[in-house]
């Protein structure tokens, strides 16, 4: 029975680790300027954690195999762990401690570069409104100014997702509101996240970015996409019945295509 345990634990550990190592299921390709650092951090953690995982499981399996008392075995005395508890404690504190220091030192830089650095001045500003259960995006329009948001004017029925007041606020009249986030490639994007009703989250796996929308707060989020294409933005914060279906597409276009798209939108709005 001890041998069976050892075999089962070993198979589980090795198969699980192999599926990680072979990237059978893995992150989608990174298309962001900052993502490679997150991926590196993740890979380093994966290697360390993987070694710990396999080592612990194999040690457990090995000891159970070795020290199981089977029928007909002669009685033998128990042995204590070589060196007792001290080397284990020292090993754990040193190994895990160093790992923690390294991960924190490197990781907090990665974190800071995404969340503690303001967007560059040339970044394109886009407002995002998350609501049950859709995202809407607003560009300032030809005047370069965003109209003020008035919650009392928000109405899905009239497509006034941002609560604009074009009757009185002239800066709001040319604002472009769309359901797809269209951005130029290789240009920093500076988003302002607004939640209309409950918590939502902005998650684009390819962009390696995630941030909650919180009602009552305007949360900045910035990134730069490095590859053109069409991607999906999904909600990762439970927001109600339609949470599973809360998504928008992101189209990363060349600067020329983007300029053309923006012009076409300005003409229709």
């Amino acid at each position: 029975m001890g041998r069976l345990f050892a075999v089962v634990v070993t198979v589980i550990a090795l198969v699980s680790a192999a599926i990680f190592a072979l990237h059978v299921w893995w992150l989608p390709p990174d298309i962001s300027a900052h993502g490679s650092r997150i991926d590196r951090q993740l890979n380093e953690t994966m290697v360390t954690a993987g070694i710990l995982f396999v080592a612990a499981q194999l040690a457990l399996g090995l000891f159970v195999w070795r020290f199981d008392v089977r029928d007909g075995m002669p009685p033998r005395a128990v042995k204590t762990f070589p060196g007792g508890v001290t080397p284990l404690v020292v090993l754990a504190i040193l190994f895990v401690g160093i790992e923690i220091l390294v991960l924190t030192f490197v990781g907090s830089k990665v974190w800071a570069s995404v969340y503690q650095t303001p967007a560059p001045a040339e970044a394109l500003q886009i407002e995002v409104e998350a609501e049950q259960f859709a995202f809407y995006f607003r560009y300032a329009g030809p005047d370069g100014k965003f109209g003020t948001m008035h919650p009392d004017l928000m109405n899905d029925a009239t497509q006034n997702f941002f609560g604009l007041d074009p009757a009185n606020d002239t800066t709001a009249r040319d604002d472009i509101v769309v359901g797809t986030l269209v951005i130029p490639v290789n240009q920093p994007i500076d988003l302002r996240l607004h939640a209309k009703d409950v918590n939502h989250s902005f998650y684009v796996p390819e962009l390696r970015i995630q941030q909650d929308f919180v009602p009552g707060m305007v949360i900045p989020l910035h990134f730069t996409a490095t590859q053109t294409g069409k991607y999906e933005l999904v909600c990762t914060q439970l927001c109600g019945l339609g949470h599973y279906n809360m998504r928008a597409y992101i189209e990363v276009k060349t600067p020329a295509d983007f300029a053309q798209w923006l012009k076409a939108q300005a003409a229709t709005s």
Partner: peptide, 18 residues
């Protein structure tokens, strides 16, 4: 992690009854 190692270390040298 230390507690986990204590458990694994306890199995070492045991007369294990499964």
């Amino acid at each position: 992690a230390i507690i986990t190692l204590l458990w694994i270390g306890t199995v070492y040298g045991a007369r294990l009854r499964l």
